[in-house]
Amino acid sequence: MQRVNMIMAESPGLITICLLGYLLSAECTVFLDHENANKILNRPKRYNSGKLEEFVQGNLERECMEEKCSFEEAREVFENTERTTEFWKQYVDGDQCESNPCLNGGSCKDDINSYECWCPFGFEGKNCELDVTCNIKNGRCEQFCKNSADNKVVCSCTEGYRLAENQKSCEPAVPFPCGRVSVSQTSKLTRAETVFPDVDYVNSTEAETILDNITQSTQSFNDFTRVVGGEDAKPGQFPWQVVLNGKVDAFCGGSIVNEKWIVTAAHCVETGVKITVVAGEHNIEETEHTEQKRNVIRIIPHHNYNAAINKYNHDIALLELDEPLVLNSYVTPICIADKEYTNIFLKFGSGYVSGWGRVFHKGRSALVLQYLRVPLVDRATCLRSTKFTIYNNMFCAGFHEGGRDSCQGDSGGPHVTEVEGTSFLTGIISWGEECAMKGKYGIYTKVSRYVNWIKEKTKLT
């Protein structure tokens, strides 16, 4: 034993070699072989497995989906700052455009905790909710729209109204504003409101030439003092309507412009014939205590009207009353817009006519005020429907199939267009061939041609 100890002390290297040989010859039971080890760690190889990531292109799944990435790591994937920024906006807080917040056709661009709407022409605001041009839906104005110097929408209202708090709607500024039905039992019968379409306001006024200088022999019209197929109006439903009495009662109609003036057809009036105007009328054979009678003290036909040349060209006249009318729910003026808007309103496509005229061709006159909704007829169809001249200051309205029309005794009465609950004068009943005849239409004086003249002559002093 002493000898062994001496050998170990003198030859430590020998001992180490012996131990190493023993270990190498022993069977290893701690580690699995290569094949079995792979069965336990069965993990798919990654895209760049075996390579240094710093030297390969980034992978979106590896960089940002398996674990949260930084902007720089995302930049490695896209290799483009702009594309990385677009991805980053949604990656950080989701897609803010998912709810489609942009209105009126706006395009949404996502941002971090926010979004941006790219608005089409005519709109602005956070969600493109603000109209900035009158060309689109009248700028959301209830009545009139004008573009300011910086191309912003400025709404306005006709006389007797003021802008509401929203700067879009119009509200009454006087007790009985024009064009409004205020009798409670008839307010439910107000005709369907007309909503502004998209309009090209630059070209809204037709490029028409008034044929002022045409000389033409007097034409022989049949029954051209021209509501057939209409309905009984309720008291106060058309408070701007008046009836004219002269040699015979209810020979023509008219509309209240203001307390002192009536507008009617020029062919209705004769110099030297006494005319009485009755406002607030409903049943011409009954006294309903809503009527107001006034005498006409002055007749002003349009300066281009000449019955000797043509009885229905420039067929418009103004009547001055001896005493002002007292405005109330049964006696209310009709609204008159400017030339541009009167023309736009007419193009809405349908209007209402009213009167006490004959209820059928050569038949009896109506006792109760009649009204009828009539569609506008395109000019080409209008011209083809008659052998008589249709001037540019006239328009056609009615039904091709016949059966409904204005008729004798309705002449001078109103053709009105309702705009968001307020009625505007767009025409004056003038003439036609018979009444409600198939293929024939009622012919009306186009008020847009005469609004400046009306307003100039009827100013209240």
Rank of each mutant, 00 (worst) to 15 (best):
H302V: 02
K137L: 13
H302K: 02
T332G: 05
I256C: 01
L41F: 05
W118D: 10
R373H: 12
I136C: 05
T158D: 04
E142T: 12
S255V: 14
D33Q: 07
L130I: 13
T190R: 09
A173K: 10
C28R: 03
C102F: 01
E129K: 04
G253M: 15
L383F: 15
T445C: 04
L376R: 05
G236S: 05
G439A: 05
K247T: 13
R379S: 13
E129I: 04
W261R: 00
N295H: 12
G50P: 02
K109G: 05
L325N: 00
N306S: 05
E171A: 10
G253N: 02
S406D: 15
R226V: 09
G254K: 00
G50A: 07
L318D: 00
K362W: 04
S423V: 08
A279T: 04
C108N: 02
S411W: 15
C108L: 03
L19M: 09
K109W: 06
T81K: 11
A317T: 04
G409A: 11
D110N: 14
V92F: 09
T218R: 09
Y352T: 08
A250F: 08
R191Q: 08
G230Q: 08
S49C: 03
T422A: 05
V56R: 00
S406P: 12
N295C: 04
M394Q: 13
A266R: 03
D198K: 08
L103N: 13
E129M: 04
S255F: 01
F121V: 13
S255T: 14
S107C: 06
R298K: 12
L103Q: 14
F388R: 09
C252D: 01
E433F: 09
E323S: 12
N393W: 05
V296P: 03
T215N: 10
R83E: 04
T218G: 09
R75T: 09
K339H: 09
V269H: 04
F224I: 14
K152S: 13
L24M: 14
T458C: 06
C252H: 00
G179T: 01
N48Y: 01
C335I: 00
S187A: 14
G442H: 15
A192V: 13
C102D: 01
P101I: 06
L372G: 10
R75G: 12
N36C: 05
T271V: 08
R294A: 03
N147R: 09
E420K: 06
N393T: 11
Y352Q: 03
G254W: 00
A164E: 06
Q408F: 14
S187K: 09
D405K: 14
A26E: 02
A279C: 04
Y330P: 00
E66N: 06
A317S: 04
Q408N: 14
C155I: 01
Q370D: 04
L460M: 15
E286F: 10
N245G: 06
A436R: 11
E54A: 01
V199H: 11
E165Q: 12
E231Y: 06
L460S: 08
G355M: 05
K234A: 14
L318H: 01
S70L: 04
Q90N: 14
K45I: 02
N104W: 04
I7S: 08
A149H: 10
Q57K: 01
E142F: 05
S204M: 15
S70Y: 03
G160T: 11
R379L: 15
K68F: 04
F144E: 00
C407F: 09
F348S: 15
L130F: 10
I443P: 03
G357M: 10
V419E: 02
S255W: 01
V30G: 11
D315G: 03
R140P: 08
E79F: 04
C268Y: 01
L425V: 01
T461Q: 10
V195C: 06
V174L: 07
K387H: 15
C155F: 00
S70R: 04
L14D: 02
N113C: 04
V195R: 13
G351F: 01
R294T: 01
D338K: 05
E66T: 05
E323I: 09
G363H: 12
T461A: 15
H400R: 12
Y371V: 15
G349T: 04
P414T: 12
A173E: 09
L383H: 15
L346Q: 08
R364D: 12
T332R: 12
G50E: 04
C382L: 03
V154C: 06
E66R: 05
H303C: 04
V359Q: 15
N203C: 04
L327M: 13
F348E: 14
P44S: 11
S430E: 03
P324W: 03
S182A: 11
N283L: 10
E27Y: 11
N203L: 08
S182Y: 10
E86D: 09
D111E: 06
G236L: 05
P414H: 12
L425M: 04
V416W: 15
L60T: 03
L103C: 07
I299Y: 09
K387W: 05
V278N: 05
C252K: 00
T271P: 14
I429D: 08
V243W: 10
F78E: 03
Y161K: 00
H267C: 03
D131G: 12
D378F: 03
L23E: 02
T81P: 13
K188Q: 12
S217V: 12
S406L: 15
D410Y: 10
L52N: 11
T29Q: 09
E54V: 01
R298Q: 08
Q237V: 07
L24K: 04
T381F: 12
T342S: 14
R162P: 01
W118K: 15
N245S: 09
N203Q: 07
N295M: 08
K455T: 07
V242W: 00
N5R: 10
S365T: 14
F224C: 06
N151F: 09
V77Y: 09
N42G: 04
C69L: 00
Q408I: 15
T290N: 10
T264Y: 00
E79L: 04
S148V: 10
C155Y: 01
L60N: 02
T133D: 15
E61R: 04
Y22V: 07
S169P: 01
A308P: 06
T194E: 13
L20S: 02
A366T: 15
V174N: 06
V243F: 11
G58F: 02
E288D: 12
F196P: 13
T81V: 14
W453A: 00
G94E: 14
P44L: 08
M6L: 13
Q90S: 14
V374D: 01
P175N: 08
C435G: 05
K347R: 15
N5Q: 12
F121H: 15
R294L: 00
T445M: 11
R162V: 12
K137R: 14
S406M: 14
F176Q: 06
Y22P: 03
T16M: 14
C128N: 03
S70K: 05
G160C: 02
F345A: 04
F121E: 14
S406E: 15
V353T: 09
T84R: 03
G351A: 09
V202R: 14
S406C: 08
E456F: 08
T332V: 13
N48L: 00
I136A: 14
G363I: 06
D150Q: 10
G442W: 05
A337P: 03
S217Q: 12
E86T: 10
N304M: 14
N393G: 12
E72K: 05
